[in-house]
Design a protein around this nucleic acid. Structure first.
Lengths: 192, 192
DNA sequence: TATACTTCTTAACATTTATCAAAGGGAAAT
DNA sequence: ATTTCCCTTTGATAAATGTTAAGAAGTATA
């Protein structure tokens, strides 16, 4: 049932015991979403962290009536409106299934329980937060230091799965340009 | 000697014991930097986390021969080239004292020791990483969703200390525009 | 199949921001 | 007091990106 997420945890924490794992496993729930469904809506507090067993998700928000995609995640990744989850404040973003998805869910209360009862999960929380920090930090640098064209090239080189699964107009807003401009960038890059 | 950082830790972890604190305290070292000094240089691995007891620091990097400031930090803040510290890879950024500074330092090895020996510090590492994530996440959103003018307004409202301590051309690169353009933004905002 | 719908492309034009150059102002040094 | 240096402002021009509108290509739906 939980092979993928189990492998994920044991890879991250090789010394995790079966007892510790079971304390987690018995708190996991499974949710199925179909394409287009919302897992978290802007304005709600996010009460879960999700492990993507299968499917493909995105974060997006509406600004001035326009959709702006802010992240894409596929199978075997952890995902959450983590700032909302941590601060217990309403989420700024929507989390949506771009393809049918099976998620394994852990609630905020259960996670706090695990933190308290099993110190090893403090380490898990630390490593997750560290990875998220590293990831967001890279994204900030890309937005501050690279041109839209360079950001698109980065995606081609490092996130080709996203390119294949996501319509171009979502990509455009993720890169920080209009769909029309991304189209021009692609044309300009054709020769290479 | 270590009142400030001590208060910081106990505020973050009210149940910290004296024994746990002392294990940390005896591993702290003090370093003094004068205005202009580099604490971490681009290309070096960052081996310390720093607590700013006094002074003012910035991160910056050189791109195409131009300086771009990527962060400013003042007293009673934690600071580190944290992605380099975590990944043990060379830092992408320079960390520099903009004013004379006294830093309290903890090495990577000592931190790993504390993580292993005192589980409470796993929680500390988690909370630090979580705070960093929330902070960088906000910055990403500002860069993706706000205009340069709005980003400058944000700094006026939320980081006025930075405005007072940092020359305008450093601010400009932090906001993501040229110094000339920031000057025009300021002119345009004069009326309000 | 026909129709509607969504996405992508293209073009003309508008706006924002960068670049380059020069001048002004203030602080530190002589 | 004068000079020098660094920072900021200003102006003219150029480059990058957004906006609007239209059409093309592909896909789902009746």
């Amino acid at each position: 049932m939980f092979q993928n997420i189990r492998a994920y945890y044991f890879r991250l924490m090789p010394h995790l015991t079966e007892a510790e794992w079971q304390a987690l496993e018995e708190r996991l729930t499974i949710k199925i979403y179909i394409k287009g469904d919302h897992i978290v809506k802007q304005g709600e507090v996010c009460n879960q962290v999700y492990f993507i067993n299968s499917g493909f998700l995105r974060f997006y928000k509406i600004i001035d009536g326009k959709e702006i995609s802010t992240g894409f995640m596929g199978a075997n990744q952890y995902v959450s409106s983590y700032d909302s989850f941590l601060t217990r404040k309403p989420a700024f973003e929507n989390l949506q299934a771009l393809e049918d998805a099976e998620l394994h869910c852990l609630s905020y209360d259960d996670m706090q329980f695990l933190y308290k009862q099993y110190p090893v999960y403090q380490m898990f929380g630390r490593v997750i937060a560290e990875q998220l920090f590293i990831w967001v930090n890279e994204r900030t640098n890309a937005l501050l230091l690279l041109s839209p064209e360079q950001r698109y090239e980065n995606m081609i080189n490092n996130q080709s799965e996203v390119l294949q699964r996501v319509p171009q107009y979502m990509l455009a807003s993720y890169i920080g340009v209009t769909p029309e401009h991304l189209s021009r960038i692609r044309k300009k890059m054709m020769g290479r």
